[in-house]
Deep mutational scan, measured.
Amino acid sequence: MPSETPQAEVGPTGCPHRSGPHSAKGSLEKGSPEDKEAKEPLWIRPDAPSRCTWQLGRPASESPHHHTAPAKSPKILPDILKKIGDTPMVRINKIGKKFGLKCELLAKCEFFNAGGSVKDRISLRMIEDAERDGTLKPGDTIIEPTSGNTGIGLALAAAVRGYRCIIVMPEKMSSEKVDVLRALGAEIVRTPTNARFDSPESHVGVAWRLKNEIPNSHILDQYRNASNPLAHYDTTADEILQQCDGKLDMLVASVGTGGTITGIARKLKEKCPGCRIIGVDPEGSILAEPEELNQTEQTTYEVEGIGYDFIPTVLDRTVVDKWFKSNDEEAFTFARMLIAQEGLLCGGSAGSTVAVAVKAAQELQEGQRCVVILPDSVRNYMTKFLSDRWMLQKGFLKEEDLTEKKPWWWHLRVQELGLSAPLTVLPTITCGHTIEILREKGFDQAPVVDEAGVILGMVTLGNMLSSLLAGKVQPSDQVGKVIYKQFKQIRLTDTLGRLSHILEMDHFALVV
């Protein structure tokens, strides 16, 4: 994948999101292997301009796509893939009243899908469409860049269908997702969380590099694949309309690839034109409109599966009536509230959605109805927002919020430890010299600072030695090549209790 991002070429006709291997024109390309080798690009942008032909009021008969309808489940399912879809609609009884809503608040519980998330729908649909058009064949390999849930859905379907599955996901995604993927037989590649989507090191860039190296491999490409919004247009939206008897006044959905909100909203605009569509985008993402909503100094966020630093091709923002931004604290607070007060075992993005819903639905009156999409299960986040310690460490809970008995030293300040200034190293000294210094002084790690004293990161003896043994660096290389740029900081005025929580999850903390 090139470091400079080429513009994806656009073909003359058809839909841009065809499933299957992508040609340089962004659509299915038939021909000899030699032709494909000559024409197939190194990668295709996940934010390529959409060429979708959908228009409100256009006859369904003019759609270029294969459409399906929700099917009634048999008493005995032939395999677990038949437990994807037909998820329950559940009334939220307490939270709406707590925040003064007059309307009825309903939750579409997508964590009841077989793999635990709304992404099971698009995973199965992308595979079925690729099999139907002859792209996927027995023994082929599926590769997908994902925040985890699409990966789980694909790995689940691949396990049943017999495909090899490789999932490329950023490091910030939970260990629970990784464990589930491994249990399903998927191979996992992790990428830096802070890598831009168009960087060769991003999950998108690495996935395309693997595709170019592995024979008979395919990126189904949830960011561009029409099967993504079509899955929701054909099934999720129809289920909502049936469950609500066609009567709903507002739908609120958090947005990642945009397939969920695009597919549902398009069908609702056709069948229930008075329904307002509300999009939820986390602070630090750029999906919301108008652009002024996205202006923030924050560039990272903890909530998973929603928000991006690019506009995915499948996201149709014209069908969203209003956007709201959400933050991590309210997302996790509301997710825990949904679990504790409503018994809905949902993930953090569901918290984002409901946090926005109780604001947006203030305009609705008694007798009206708001539906929220709860995308995934708490299963993926047992060591994250479900953990009091994690919430404390991230600053989303305060010590006084917890009532468990603490040891005698818990409320003492870090400054009472009488710490001395640490050994520091410059980023320009060599790895070999740094190892000598650390061994001589008896230290395992040291902060790396520039000549102005600005902290650049941390270097550890173990990481340097393993990097040297693996051949990633040489003793003569500058130590700046092996620094940890993500590390926890703590102030002298913070409590030892807070430091204790940090050290339970990290090997060190830097006192500043």
Rank of each mutant, 00 (worst) to 15 (best):
231 A>H: 14
162 G>E: 00
22 H>K: 03
165 C>I: 05
50 S>V: 07
141 T>Y: 08
124 L>D: 10
152 I>V: 08
173 M>F: 02
215 P>K: 08
76 I>K: 13
73 S>W: 12
165 C>L: 06
16 P>Q: 07
103 C>I: 07
222 Q>F: 02
127 I>T: 09
237 A>N: 01
275 C>T: 04
202 S>E: 06
81 L>C: 07
102 K>S: 02
35 D>H: 13
63 S>N: 09
271 K>G: 06
262 T>W: 03
176 E>T: 00
238 D>Q: 03
253 A>M: 07
109 C>L: 05
195 A>T: 10
7 Q>S: 11
276 R>I: 08
46 P>K: 01
186 A>T: 05
100 G>D: 15
259 G>Q: 01
232 H>R: 03
253 A>E: 07
121 R>T: 01
18 R>H: 15
27 S>Q: 11
96 G>Q: 03
12 P>I: 06
83 K>H: 10
133 D>K: 11
167 I>A: 09
19 S>W: 15
264 I>H: 03
271 K>R: 14
166 I>E: 04
62 E>I: 13
54 W>P: 06
13 T>C: 04
272 C>F: 12
38 A>R: 09
70 P>N: 11
174 S>N: 02
240 I>E: 01
62 E>V: 07
113 N>G: 09
180 V>Q: 05
72 K>A: 06
262 T>Y: 00
20 G>M: 09
189 V>C: 08
159 A>D: 02
155 A>R: 01
155 A>W: 02
247 K>T: 13
137 K>T: 09
180 V>F: 05
151 G>Q: 00
187 E>W: 09
270 E>F: 10
214 I>V: 06
241 L>H: 03
134 G>P: 08
107 A>F: 05
49 P>F: 07
182 R>A: 05
224 R>M: 06
245 D>G: 15
86 D>R: 10
85 G>L: 02
273 P>S: 11
168 V>R: 04
44 I>V: 14
140 D>H: 05
173 M>W: 00
150 T>L: 01
105 L>K: 03
73 S>Y: 13
77 L>T: 05
89 M>I: 10
29 E>I: 12
5 T>C: 09
241 L>Y: 13
173 M>V: 06
16 P>M: 09
178 V>F: 15
104 E>T: 04
49 P>Y: 05
193 T>Q: 09
91 R>W: 02
267 K>S: 02
250 M>R: 02
205 G>M: 03
192 P>M: 06
71 A>Q: 11
113 N>Q: 05
161 R>P: 07
232 H>T: 00
182 R>W: 06
93 N>Y: 05
212 N>A: 05
168 V>F: 05
211 K>T: 10
17 H>S: 08
165 C>V: 05
170 P>I: 01
185 G>C: 00
269 K>C: 13
51 R>K: 12
174 S>P: 01
128 E>G: 02
276 R>M: 10
270 E>P: 04
189 V>K: 06
215 P>C: 00
103 C>A: 05
149 N>I: 01
53 T>W: 08
250 M>H: 01
118 V>M: 14
69 A>Y: 13
141 T>I: 13
105 L>G: 05
17 H>P: 08
147 S>C: 02
103 C>Q: 01
130 A>V: 07
255 V>P: 04
44 I>P: 11
104 E>L: 04
18 R>C: 06
108 K>F: 02
196 R>M: 10
168 V>C: 06
223 Y>V: 00
166 I>R: 09
227 S>T: 11
222 Q>L: 03
86 D>F: 10
93 N>C: 13
137 K>Y: 07
122 I>F: 02
173 M>E: 02
132 R>C: 15
5 T>M: 05
235 T>I: 12
180 V>P: 03
136 L>W: 07
182 R>Y: 09
118 V>K: 07
158 A>S: 07
182 R>L: 08
174 S>L: 02
22 H>M: 03
175 S>Y: 12
38 A>I: 04
28 L>S: 11
75 K>E: 06
262 T>E: 00
136 L>T: 08
188 I>H: 00
265 A>H: 04
33 P>S: 10
85 G>N: 06
58 R>F: 05
